[in-house]
């Protein structure tokens, strides 16, 4: 699998990062190199191996359905650089 500038464009768009031409060039080379390196995993046969998503065998962690008032709601909301009538401002979405 070769990694090209087109791939960089694709993932940059998915992750909403715009890149300069120089960044694009560098990242293409570097990611290609890293991806080549990680291909060593393919040397391992993992056909009957379960994937590990959580390292500890924990399940069923719940909280009770109790509504609580957060003491820092206002402080949290006011961290926004742009509040309009108590709403978080974003460029007009149609």
């Amino acid at each position: 699998m070769s990694f090209t500038e087109k791939d960089v464009d694709y993932v940059a768009n998915l992750s909403r990062i715009s890149l300069s031409d120089e960044e694009k060039k560098n990242f293409t080379v570097q990611l290609e190199q890293i991806l080549k390196y990680v291909e060593k995993l393919n040397r391992l046969n993992t056909d009957n191996i379960e994937p590990t998503a959580h390292i500890l065998p924990v399940s069923n962690v719940f909280r009770d359905d109790v509504a609580k008032i957060c003491p820092t709601t206002r402080f949290a909301v006011e961290q926004s650089a742009l509040l309009v009538d108590g709403l978080f401002g974003v460029p007009r979405v149609i």
């Binding site: 962690v61 719940f62 909280r63 009770d64 359905d65 957060c70 820092t72 709601t73 949290a76 909301v77 961290q79 108590g86 709403l87 978080f88």
Partner: peptide, 20 residues
Amino acid sequence: NSQVCPVCLGHPGVLPVLNK
């Protein structure tokens, strides 16, 4: 935005816990 907290606002470092 009166029924919000750092968790549901997606502040850095917050974690979810499932409502039973």
